[in-house]
Every structure is written in structure tokens, then in C-alpha cells.
Amino acid sequence: MVAKRIIPCLDVADGRVVKGVNFVGLRDAGDPVELACRYSAAGADELVFLDIAASHQGRGTLVELVQRTAEAVTIPFTVGGGISSVEGITALLRAGADKVSLNSSAVRDPELVARGAERFGCQCIVVAIDARARAGGGWDVYVKGGRENTGLDAVAWARQVVALGAGEILLTSMDGDGTQAGYALELTRAVADAVQVPVIASGGAGCIDHLAEALDPGPAGGHASAALLASLLHDGILSVEQIKTELLRRGLPIRPLASSC
């Protein structure tokens, strides 16, 4: 079975990491490329850069950041935030990103997913879904950082974007995000079981148990292919090494650390 992936997510704005990262011996805690190299050497399986400024002015900086990352890092990375056209996708993939992640732009213009997949292949097109539990059951898709309810059903939306050509789903539970109370297992499982493509669980990780649950293929698990992590890693609460060692010990398929350095 393909190894479950551990994916650090770095929020960037104007070419700098936004939240501080607690890495011993970092020369520049705000340099995304140095951090990317550190996480790669530490055993991260992939990386995600999320451009949270996504201003017009910042786009050039983002492309430059992607180029520098591609020169230095030898694992795959995804770039998301503010990508709203095939031209935008093209610029980032040409600069060296392996995948782009579309979120509100996919809601506004679902055909963008199809056009991107047709041009570059579905493996390049990740659709990020921010979901929140709906009163009475099910989950709604939110955009604008969780402020606006689109009224779309998260499971149906996941099916739709996969039918359009998305090769992966990055699923964030807005209820869990920042709580460190655990991934939204029921949501993650519902989406993972509804689509053929891999699902990355995001939002709510607080400890290794939460990761194990999200990646667990059993009836109570989240059935996710990968887990996205931010503050838990950046704040130094857990290291990639600790996570992988423990998940391996629990019998999950994990790429061994020795293959990273």
C-alpha cells in the first residue's frame, strides 16, 4: 500500500513565511525555501505553500519563491491561494510547482478545474475544500477563509470536482482548524469514500493519535491518504521524525526516515 503522507503546510505572504517556525538553528525562520529544505530533510513526504496574501503584487514574489523552492527541494510541493485562471496555473507549474491547489476559484468557476486538468493532467490539480458541519447533518463548503457558506454539500462537491478532473482533495475541517481537538473523522471518511482520488486531511491535529486516526483505513478511521500539518510542527510540539517513527510503530505504511537523508 502506498505510504501515508505527512505534509507540512507553510503559510506565505510576499515571499515570506507568515507564522513563525520553531526550528533549532534556523538562519532565517521566515525564509520558505530554507524551511522547505529543513522539512524535506526531516522526512516530510510533500510540502504545501499557501499564499495567504494572494495580492496582485504578491504573485510575482510567489512565482519567484516557487522557482527557488524547485531548485532546492527534491520532494513534490503544491502551491495554493488566489489562483483563478489557467494562466495562473501555468505560471506556477512552469516555475516548478508539482501541483496547484484551487479553492474559491473552483467554486466560482468549476470549469477551471476541467481546463487545468485537461492542459496539465489531473495529477497537477488539487481542489481544496473548506467544510463545516451543517445543523441537522452533513457538511457545507465555505469560502473566504470560512466566512462565506456556499451552500454546496461537501461530499457532493468533492464528487463533482473529481468528475471535472481534480486529482486530489485537500479537505479542511473549519470546525477543527486551530482547535487541536482532532481531525473531523466522519467528514474525512465520507469524502474519502465518495471519491476515487487521494484525500488529504487537514484541520484539528493536536497529537499523534489524531494523525493515526485520520490515516486509519479501518471502519472508524478517516481513510485519508495524507495528513496536512501546520502549527503542530511549526510550534515544535511534534517533529516529522517523531510522527513517522510512532506511526510506523503502529503499523501504518510510512516512508522510512532513512530514505530522506
Partner: peptide, 14 residues
């Protein structure tokens, strides 16, 4: 081959 529990694309480390 399409099999439950084995996502396609086959994506990741092996």
C-alpha cells in the same frame, strides 16, 4: 485496476 481503498491516481511514496 480500480479497487476500494486504493485511490487513483496512485500518488505517493513506495
Amino acid at each position: 485496476p480500480r479497487r476500494p481503498g486504493h485511490p487513483i491516481p496512485h500518488m505517493g511514496w513506495e
